[in-house]
Design a binder for these strands. Structure first.
Length: 204
DNA sequence: TCTAAGATGGGT
DNA sequence: CCCATCTTAGAA
């Protein structure tokens, strides 16, 4: 009997995908891609269905808004690294660092549609109702914690690969969640979801 | 040193 | 609506 594990023929996104300059476009492009982790020898994955873009220059909602701190220095690395941080002392949020070295942009992954490793994800989530709908829940399901911040996403522990084709007509945009403190930048339409997908964390 | 606040989620 | 929970950044 053959066990189906992942999409072994899929193409892993490479450095050139992540090093592009337009973080908003990358946030759109990540919809339909598959986020994968191989933690403790177990493959878990899901299709990205909700993202948010954060720009390091002139975006008050971005942790690295023209300032380097111990936490945010990883965002200044070359695109294709992970920025994982602890939110509210409880939740580990996973971001994809984008743009070239020195330009601190990132895309927050807010929800995925589970594909591989359902059993492991349910165990890690303690069989909660919402398995991977929300930035803090999907990291727990995939076994991603802040100890992985700085990880190279072109490696073999956590990576993103091609999966579904998502057209512009399949995408809705809205304002980012939880960034009311960012004044006028809170109004930027930099949150993106795949229309009608039932795994998005909150309707636009 | 000290402290307020936070890119959330789960329960009541 | 309430609260758990703790790191981080900025102030003193």
């Amino acid at each position: 009997m053959k066990l189906k594990i992942g999409n072994s023929s899929a193409t892993k996104l490479d450095r050139s995908f992540y090093e592009r300059q337009d973080v908003v476009q990358i946030a759109r492009d990540l919809l339909g891609k598959r986020l994968c982790s191989m933690i403790d020898g177990v493959l878990t994955s899901g299709v990205i269905v909700e993202t948010e873009a954060y720009c390091g220059r002139g975006d008050k909602a971005c942790h690295a808004n023209n300032k380097v701190t111990p936490r945010t220095q990883v965002m200044y690395e070359a695109g294709g690294h992970a920025y994982v941080y602890l939110c509210y002392g409880i939740h580990h949020l996973f971001n994809v660092v984008t743009n070239v070295e020195g330009k601190a942009d990132a895309v927050l992954v807010r929800a995925i549609e589970p594909v591989d490793g359902l059993e492991t994800m349910n165990l890690r989530r303690n069989f909660a109702k919402k398995l991977t709908s929300g930035p803090g829940t999907l990291t727990k399901a995939l076994g991603i914690s802040k100890s992985l911040t700085g990880l190279d996403l072109t490696g073999h522990l956590v990576w993103i690969e091609e999966d579904r084709t998502v057209g512009e007509e399949d995408i809705s945009e809205g304002t980012r969640i939880g960034v009311d403190y960012a004044e006028e930048d809170a109004l930027r339409p930099w949150r993106f979801v795949i229309n009608g997908n039932k795994y998005i964390s909150k309707k636009i």
